[in-house]
Amino acid sequence: MIAALNGAFDDISKAMRLHRVWIALAHEDIGDQHRRTTLGPLWMLVNYFAFVGTFAFVFVTKDASNPSYIAYVAIGMLVWFYLTETITMSVSLFQREASFIQGTTLPLFVYVMRLTMQCIIRAGYSLAGCVLILLLSGYGINTNWLLSLVGLLLLILATPAFVVVFAFLGAFFPDSEFIVGNLMRVGMFFTPVFWVYSGQEGVQEYAYHWNPFTYFLEGVREPITAGIFPGHSLAVTGYFCLGLWAIALLLLGLYRKRIVFLI
């Protein structure tokens, strides 16, 4: 166990020293995806606006310009898109990186950070859109935004662990690419991204309280939309991150040298 953890930390520290590699590759990945388009990476901002606009338009029934609901959806979509993209892309990570893994001695965590960086860059565009929507909805910048940053920071800290866990899952169990993809699509309806929980019973109660993604969302959203310190959400998210990182470190320590035989 100790040897495995040492191996994992060694891999992580080597990868962090090679930060220029994964930052450069992540930028190239983003650039390649939009290189021939007119708007370039701004398409990510357009997509975000389109989704938030559609949900706000469809689900706001009483008052089409209800600013609190629009802000609720805007932050919900920001976090959910980030999570869903991170997780679904992680499952096939080692397959996509097969030529590098089989042809170089780069630490495995380099690929984890490459994807993490990609997801953060993409989320940056959505974040710009989200801030714009919040400002237009009348949520001026105040100290509550700093509390929201704590939630965002926890989310970013959890990202490499999410990537490691789901990348190993995909390597050991290739069918998980399709299973996870479908679960994340369905998961949006079981997570309070666009629906508001106000004490309902039944499925919504379980979906709200027993869904770890709820706490990632609320940790970022509650300070701005409800003006409260999301202590409970941050605590649950923090414990979840610790557990996830423990699993990620064990997987990395035990199996990082075996991945080359699995892909």
Binding site: E28, G31, D32, R35, S99, G103, T104
Partner: peptide
């Protein structure tokens, strides 16, 4: 020198 084309990106 296993695969000299490794890491080359068509768009760059």
């Amino acid at each position: 020198l296993f695969n000299i084309h490794i890491g080359f990106r068509p768009e760059a």
